[in-house]
Nucleic acid binder design. Structure first.
Length: 584
RNA sequence: GACCCCGUAGCUCAGCUGGAUAGAGCAGCGGACUUCUAAUCCGCAGGUCGCAGGUUCGAAUCCUGCCGGGGUCGCCA
């Protein structure tokens, strides 16, 4: 049961009834009416701004309107008290038993608690990672990977049909560089002395393995031959090797994407030409000359006619080139074809997770998607700011050139995938993140991963103790749902139940805002509520969960504890983090 | 020159799409360990929400203009 949505419906119905009774004009816009938990619990369990929002259009004083609506709401089942406060808020207090029924719902739902049908099966495509296949994943890539993955799970949880996708940029100049660098390592593997790695090549040692593997497969077949003869095959070989490396890196942090789309395949199948034709037919492409770029003008800049997409018609600042001076496609052209492809595969909502350095690209892509789908698809970009890796309070030096950059694997080996994933989600994605290699392993309250996991472990510990020491009590969650929950009467027990009842609402709002980090903050707060109740049991033995002399009350408390474990597990599931049974 | 992020307690950050007296953790101060693991909990203290206007019954939140930090701006992806 989603308490807040349930009462939102009731408030809406009562307002409509007032309209029907002639107390209010009909057809009022109820879009701004909210029903939510008040910030201050002393105000009650629920608060609605309906009277404040509707007073003006209804031509009535907020307080009067509030009184009228309050009178109706006081007749609603489970509403025990209605007060009008401040400028015209209506505060409701609900029957305690309602929260106990919510608790029973949690037990029946299990770790799926919070799932909903909000998305109504709409198709969402979440594209994330999508790094160039030129090297292993770094910690920086991991943030986008984790954010994209958690967002996908979050959307799936609220009823969207989600595709997790990776776009392989295997058609640009960078993969040619990769091929050349690999060829160099291949020659090295066959005994040549290559000396230093020339400027403009990838220096990473990981390419030695690829060169060696190529030598093993093909022998000296590509030796002493002109580049055009080997470039294509070496490139294919190297890209495959890099994608294996990347897929392994993703697997290391528990990510498996559904679709890997190749830019090269798109280009070679004529997908880009097809898009161009479509655009031309609609007069969205023309040949023109652009102004020089503002700011730092490239030295080799010269005005020349080029193939342009009329992005300005869709809100962009300038029209955007689709072809480079050498006649090949710009990045935009195949990317347009790619997004059209996603749309044709059924995506009604497309979400791209990008690094923050791509900020300048969002307007043209938004324009492109609008043009290509004729406004039928929603397009959203999530930016991930940099991750600053810290050790002993000092930033870890990251330089590819100096060979000191830290691979994702190294960090996962050090802290584990669950810690990495959770920490990556403890900030808004568009805020920078400090990742403290020691801090994330600290066993204290200021480490959110530990604190949340500890709450789960504590709950599980109680259940284990119960099973061992009080074997006659029910253990099955469904049976626990039938325990005499009316014996849960302490204010902190009720507070915990209320907090738990907010979970479905929190999940939906996080999904609607595309903000998975909200889950992390909820879990942290929720864990604090649970730890607090736990500790009260130390001083007041009557508040302990396990009371051998009171089997009925103990059963009710086990129901509460089990529900806590389910709620935490439900949140961690969205994050792809395994809830732990005990802390070590 | 333009566009995109960010600016909230000494520090690191939340703030539920405009609600009531702006909240957590850390650091500081004071308390609770014969327990269902004190790896935790309770209390105190700490604020001109960058600045100035505007919209509104009501603004940290929306709009405008400044200030400060970061990013980007044809042939990189």
């Amino acid at each position: 049961m989603h308490v807040f949505k349930y009462f939102q419906d009731i408030v809406t119905k009562e307002i409509e009834a007032m309209g029907a009774a002639g107390e209010l004009p009909g057809g009022l816009d109820l879009g701004r009416v909210t029903v939510e938990p008040p910030r201050d619990a002393a105000h009650g369990d629920l608060s609605t701004n309906a009277a404040l929002v509707l007073a003006k259009p209804a031509g009535r004083k907020p307080r009067d309107l509030a009184e009228a609506l309050a009178a109706r709401l006081s007749q609603v089942p489970d509403v025990t008290e209605v007060t009008v406060a401040g400028p015209g808020f209506i505060n409701l207090r609900l029957d305690e038993d309602l929260w106990r029924r919510c608790l029973a719902d949690v037990l029946r739902a299990g770790p799926d608690y919070g799932a909903s049908t909000l998305g109504a099966g709409r198709k969402v495509n979440v594209e994330y990672v999508s790094t160039n296949p030129t090297g292993p994943l770094t910690v920086g890539h991991a943030r986008g990977a984790v954010v994209g993955d958690a967002l996908a799970s979050l959307l799936a949880k609220v009823g969207f049909e989600v595709t997790r996708e990776y776009y392989i940029n295997d058609a640009g100049a960078q993969v040619d560089t990769l091929a050349r660098s690999t060829h160099l390592r291949y020659r090295e593997a066959l005994g040549e002395t290559i000396g230093g790695i020339p400027e403009g090549y990838y220096p990473g040692a990981y390419l030695k393995d690829v060169g060696r593997a190529l030598a093993e497969r093909d022998g000296d077949k590509w030796l002493g031959r002109p580049e055009p003869e080997w470039l294509g095959e070496v490139r294919r070989f190297a890209i495959d090797a890099m994608m294996d490396l990347i897929r392994q890196g993703l697997a290391d942090i528990g990510i498996r994407q559904d679709v890997f789309s190749s830019e090269r395949a798109l280009v070679e199948s004529g997908g880009v030409e097809a898009v161009l034709e479509t655009l031309e037919a609609r007069d969205l492409v023309y040949t023109g000359v652009l102004e020089p770029p503002k700011g730092q003008t490239p030295e080799d800049w010269e005005a020349r006619p080029q193939t342009l997409f009329r992005a300005t018609r869709f809100g962009d600042d300038v029209d955007r080139p689709l072809k480079k001076s050498d006649g090949s496609w710009t990045y935009l052209a195949p990317d347009m074809a790619y997004h059209l492809d996603k749309f044709r595969r059924g995506a009604e909502i497309m979400i791209d997770v990008w690094g923050a350095d791509h900020g300048g690209y969002v307007k043209r892509m938004t324009a492109a998607v609008e043009a290509l789908t004729e406004g039928k698809a929603e397009f959203k970009v999530l930016f991930c700011q940099l991750v600053k890796l810290m050790r002993h309070g000092e930033p870890v030096k990251m330089s590819k050139r100096a060979g000191t950059f830290v691979t994702l694997k190294e960090v996962v080996d050090e802290v584990g995938k669950d810690v990495l994933r959770f920490i990556m989600l403890t900030r808004k994605n568009d805020a920078p993140l400090d990742f403290d290699l020691e801090g994330v392993l600290e066993k204290s309250r200021d480490n959110p991963v530990f604190y949340v996991q500890y709450a789960h472990a504590r709950a599980r510990s109680v259940l284990r103790h119960a099973a061992a020491e009080l074997p006659d009590l029910p253990r099955d969650p469904t049976a626990l749902a039938g325990a005499p929950l009316d014996l849960l009467t302490d204010s902190d027990e009720l507070a915990l139940m209320k907090r738990m009842a907010e979970w479905p609402r929190l999940v939906e709002s996080a999904a609607e805002a595309y903000e998975p980090h909200r889950i992390a903050f909820f879990l942290y707060d929720f864990a604090a509520t649970f730890h607090g109740l736990w500790t009260r049991g130390k001083d007041e033995t009557a508040l302990r969960f396990l009371l051998p002399d009171e089997p009925e009350r103990t059963a009710a408390r086990l129901a509460l504890v089990q529900a806590v474990a389910f709620t935490v597990a439900s949140g961690l599931q969205i994050f792809g983090v395994e809830p732990v049974e005990e802390m070590r």
